[in-house]
Amino acid sequence: MTEIIVVTSGKGGVGKTTTSASVACGLARRGKRVAVIDFDIGLRNLDLIMGCERRVVYDFVNVIQGDCTLKQALIKDKRLETLFVLAASQTRDKDALSMEGVRKVFDELIAEGFEYIICDSPAGIEKGAHLAMYYADRAIVVVNPEVSSVRDSDRILGLLSSKTQRAEKGEEKVKEHLLLTRYSPRRVAAGEMMSVADVKDILGLDVVGVVPESPDVLSASNAGTPVILNDESDVSKAYEDAVARLLGETVPLRFVDEPKKGFLARMFGG
């Protein structure tokens, strides 16, 4: 069985690619065969976050147009045996991706025995985003606790329930999960930021993960190492928890409450 998961958000810069990379790594760490695909045609970036940018020879559009085989275009991760990356094309032709082309690539990945296909959606609600979600079984909706991100996610939820294959065929609907990023328990406690419960309430989704705001995310992207692989980091732990929940495990939420500070820390802002 292959499960197709789209990582989407509507708004840009909320952490779709970071999430795609970390979820893909997390699943592969558990021995799953995973392909992670960049759907952001023209603005390739997943390769950088995965740290394989210099190994991109062929891309997604090359496979669809028959310039190469899928095997030639899949980049095998150097850290995890069962993880493969398919880079986006840098072409400016937005129509290079087609519904049939994407289906063909998915069918081949399924035949190859991949258990998970992670689709890293571009921002916006245009063709690339539509294709990334079209065949999905599940959707991870990445949201920042901020008004424009929440509103855009709601638009995406509308599209998931009307513009996907499952919706069009009247099949069981796409399973939607909420993943909050850049969460600051301190600011939530101060009433400056919407809480997990607030966002959950507005969007009406189940929470698959809450990732705390952290400098580790930038360090990870600087280094080309998906942040989940930095085991010391709270961000890594939060993504590991999210992966466990995706796999059906029940894991309590961490990093959502403000850590209790001692007297000195409070005085000196430690």
Binding site: E146, V147, V150, R151, D154, R155, G158, V188, A190, G191, E192, M193, M194, S195, D198, D201, I202, L203
Partner: peptide
């Protein structure tokens, strides 16, 4: 100076606009 606790305002505004947009959708 404490920054303003504005999370509730955000929540209320979103609740209204999201409901309105869902209706239109």
């Amino acid at each position: 100076r404490r920054s303003q606790p504005t999370a509730n305002v955000a929540k209320e505004r979103l609740r209204i606009i999201v409901a309105q947009e869902r209706t239109a959708r």
